[in-house]
Simulated scan of single mutants.
Amino acid sequence: MSDPLTIETAAAGDIAAVMTVMTEAFDPAFGEAWNANQCLGILGLPGVWMLLARRAAEPLGFALARIVMDEAELLLLGVRPAHRRHGVGSKLLERVTAEAEARGAARLHLEVRDGNPALELYRARGFSQTGCRPDYYRGADGKSFDALSLTTVVKK
């Protein structure tokens, strides 16, 4: 029997584990990954929280979110490629949503590159498109991609 998946609140001391996931989860062709200083810088701000998914001691995924007033935003969600489609991303998203609701959010927003496979997860979890930023992301090959703004209701 394999070890259970655990999701814990992450702190600055977990940044090495988060960066392990970040390096594998975000394709460098799109420049979407954050560096450790960016993560640590925002983590110290009010209303920001980070979650880390592990199996035993191995980091599998993470999520970084924030809330301002009654609006929450999922800033980053990453899962190591070998662990995708095994429920890690879904469990992280569930926890972010629950935490956003506990903190008083009415809605949860996120932005994602058009064509990102994570769109499937977000749509399955009730997110709908509320906006689009044309040509927001630029790949290493010069091709541009729209940024899609998605939102879901947290408080029913």
Rank of each mutant, 00 (worst) to 15 (best):
C39M: 10
L77S: 01
R66H: 14
I67C: 09
R84P: 00
N37H: 07
L74I: 07
G47H: 14
G61H: 06
W49E: 04
A65H: 03
R80V: 00
P46E: 13
R54T: 15
G61V: 08
G47F: 12
A36R: 04
E58P: 02
L40V: 10
A57W: 05
L75S: 01
P59L: 05
L45P: 03
E71H: 07
Q38K: 14
A72D: 00
G41D: 08
C39E: 05
L52W: 15
N35W: 10
L75D: 01
M50S: 15
W49N: 09
L75H: 02
R66M: 14
W49M: 05
M50D: 03
R55L: 06
R55D: 08
E58Q: 09
L76R: 13
P46W: 11
A53V: 08
A63V: 12
A63Y: 09
I42Q: 05
W49C: 12
N35F: 10
G78Q: 03
L43F: 06
A56Q: 04
G61F: 06
L51S: 11
F62L: 09
R80I: 00
A82Y: 00
L76A: 09
R54P: 10
P59R: 01
R55E: 13
I67Y: 07
N37C: 11
R80P: 00
G41K: 14
G47M: 13
I67A: 08
V68A: 12
A72Y: 07
A57L: 05
A56E: 06
R54L: 12
E73P: 03
A72P: 00
L75F: 07
R54Q: 15
E73T: 08
R66N: 09
M69Y: 02
I42N: 08
Q38H: 11
R84H: 01
R85D: 00
L60R: 11
L51V: 15
I42F: 06
M69C: 04
H83L: 00
E71M: 02
G61I: 06
L64P: 04
V79C: 01
F62G: 15
P81M: 03
N37T: 14
A56L: 03
P59C: 07
N35K: 06
A56M: 09
N37K: 13
Q38L: 07
C39A: 14
L52C: 15
I42E: 10
L45Q: 15
L52E: 11
A56P: 03
G44F: 11
G47E: 13
V79S: 04
A53P: 04
L74T: 05
V79Q: 04
A65L: 08
D70L: 06
L76V: 03
L77T: 05
L64E: 04
E71V: 02
A36D: 11
F62K: 04
R54Y: 05
A57V: 08
L45Y: 07
E71R: 04
H83P: 00
L40M: 12
L64M: 10
L43R: 13
A36I: 04
A82R: 02
Q38W: 02
L40E: 10
L40G: 15
